[in-house]
Write a protein that binds this DNA or RNA. Structure first.
Lengths: 230, 230
DNA sequence: GTCTATAGCGTGATAGAC
DNA sequence: GTCTATCACGCTATAGAC
């Protein structure tokens, strides 16, 4: 939970950790309660910092958000593109499709590629913010994620001969919505299955997301001008 | 300030309209900005009521939410069950599956069954609240929607011979997440398709949701003890 | 450069005058 | 039923201590 795993400049220790402590606390709290529901005072308290320090380091509350995105977006997208390249080497179209989808979903759950060790935590923040309609988050997301999304749509198009590209976009959009919803409201699975299945089981969630999406995409095969397109 | 232009009922009926005006304003604003981002003062201003009147009629802000749910939940679920019964009369399994899914999705978009004329608006409120983790909303949702969800899972199971019930729950869960996400972040479709397709087109959104979900469910056929279940 | 203390104004909630 | 006054707490900005 300290700042040891930071890829800081080898010299210049200069970071007194206050800044990072605030950032970590903000991310943790916002992943749990969203943006508006968390106060700067809570963040200051949780990080052991003074309220004034928060505005000194970050200015407005919104900038805290921007920083959280900053430190997660690039590693996550790099990991996605890396997995996507690996998936591209698979010859069988069906296997490749599954691997492509998986390379999009996995980094959203996994913590391996993350700065402060929390892929799922960061994805929860994004999920909540996407619904809160936070303008700052909207801008950052559009700028940092849209090109990655395009790459995935392209890779998927390569696995589904003759599929309408717009329809693929819709299906990928549904995947993201399902992913977000599951990460935040996973307990609903437990309730509706009477405890037989759990939404907190990330392995299972990934598997379900991948196979459900693959099936919805396969359905588009050869529907270039099909009934549901455009 | 200037509350003279209030539209009174011609008859002086028991409803002083202030209460309903507040409720309407609250629903409209919360559908746009969520719960925490909307202040009681904004609601009071938009409805032409005094701030004190808001707390007089509803007490806490949370109760406003409860009332909004109150007046929409039952009509929407009634409409869903009505459409579900109609769908149940279809003999062909594939056609019935599409109709069943449609009967779940349509009332979430349509305004026909709604009190204040806004099925999509109410669904947006639910979507945002589901992510904000609002506790009051959670309780109401669990109480009012879970049984409807069970009915749909059952109806779907009747269309997919041998499918694992838990897997169906996962797929229906994904449908709800995709629906919510589309209703709030539909502009993403416009961006990623370069304007060729629009997320604001509800007819199209419904069609895409229904067919994508149907495909993901068909995929479960005969996988009662399949690889992705439990 | 970093942090603390404090003051401005907006917000939810309450008590009590009309 | 309606409205005003008031309170505690929220975000933000800034002055001044280390």
């Amino acid at each position: 939970m300290q700042k040891n795993e930071k890829i800081e400049q080898p010299y210049k220790k200069a970071r007194p950790s206050t800044r990072d402590a605030i950032l970590d606390a903000a991310e943790t709290l916002m992943a749990q309660h969203g943006y508006h529901a968390v106060s700067l005072r809570e963040i200051a308290r949780a990080s052991g910092a003074n309220l004034g320090s928060v505005t000194y380091h970050f200015g407005a509350k919104e900038n805290l958000l921007a920083e959280i995105y900053e430190r997660h977006t690039r590693p996550m997208n790099l990991r996605r593109m890396e997995l996507l390249r690996e998936a591209g080497r698979i010859n069988d179209q069906e296997d490749r499709l599954l691997a492509v989808i998986r390379s999009f979903v996995l980094p959203a759950f996994s913590s391996q590629s993350d700065v402060a060790g929390g892929g799922a935590r960061f994805t929860r923040v994004r999920a909540i913010l996407s619904m809160e309609g936070n303008e700052a988050a909207q801008r950052i997301i559009a700028a940092s994620f849209d090109d990655t999304s395009h790459a995935f749509v392209d890779a998927i198009a390569g696995c589904i001969p003759g599929a309408d590209r717009n329809a693929i976009v819709w299906r990928c959009h549904f995947l993201l919505g399902a992913l977000y919803y599951t990460l935040v409201n996973g307990d609903r699975i437990d309730r509706l299955t009477g405890g037989a299945s759990s939404g907190e089981d990330h392995e299972l969630a990934i598997d379900q997301l991948v196979h459900a999406t693959a099936a919805s995409l396969r359905d588009l095969s050869g529907s270039g001008d099909g009934r549901t397109s455009t």
